[in-house]
Amino acid sequence: MSMGAALSSSRGVHTSRRTHDVPQPSAAGTSAAAAQGPAGQSMDAQEVAKFEAMASEWWDPDGPNGALHTMNPLRTQFARDAICLAHGREARTVQPLRDLSVLDVGCGGGLFSEALARLGADVTGVDTSATAISVAATHAQADPAVASRTHYQNATAEQLQQQGAHFDAVVASEVIEHVSNVPEFCASLVALTRPGGSIVVSTINRTNRSYAVAIVGAEQIMGLLPKGTHQWERFITPEELQEHIERAGAERIGDSGMVMNPFTGHWTFSADKAVNYIMSFRKPAEQQRNP
């Protein structure tokens, strides 16, 4: 479900509707899209429908997810370092995540999942779009080394939580800005993490700049994204994200801005967190009671 690289374009979608500007409660079970996907999700149903329409273009680097392709090495590097830090491992080695279980929430076509699998992790990718899951599973088949370390499920974080699943690390990249109940979503991420494990979240900040870049620039002026791809009001500031996750029982390790050079498409880490940013957390080794 990841999508939110601020400048990713979306040629495939022309008819997506604007959803309500205020976050909705998580009772998505009654909506049309939720009927074809799993129930009990905090993912907004109309958001799901948007991504369903463009799922076949997940692996086209020149397609609507182009910015995710170019961002992928950077977020992988950040996640690798955060997970290695939490698990006491050296990061710049062959398969530093070997034998660690990682959950990729909102895995989409599997871009992030495959990268983490190549670093040795045993990755479970979940997404509310059945099409995306099918694309991800098919794509992974080409390389046995990737296929053996990726497992995709059409499910939500909440469903996995109900199944009692736990992972050494949980990542949610470019997805939280599309969920309808952010606190509940954050609580799921933490609950799915083993004590001592790490959580990595990347998303778009809610600033004047992100409004200018993601909404006015990308959607209204440049037409890179169909209108309604993002609702600026749903964007989450680093402070809010930190508060939600910490309330759920994990502590912040570090964060970074991620900035794309619009001319080269090249992403770099930056102190500037006004648009895209990524943040890592660690769940304390001692089991803590979640609020």
Binding site: H69, N72, L74, T76, E114, A115
Partner: peptide, 14 residues
């Protein structure tokens, strides 16, 4: 080396 470090497919065209 960069690809291996960042989990990229070493045969990726990009």
């Amino acid at each position: 080396a960069h690809a291996v470090e960042t989990g990229r497919d070493i045969g990726d065209l990009g």
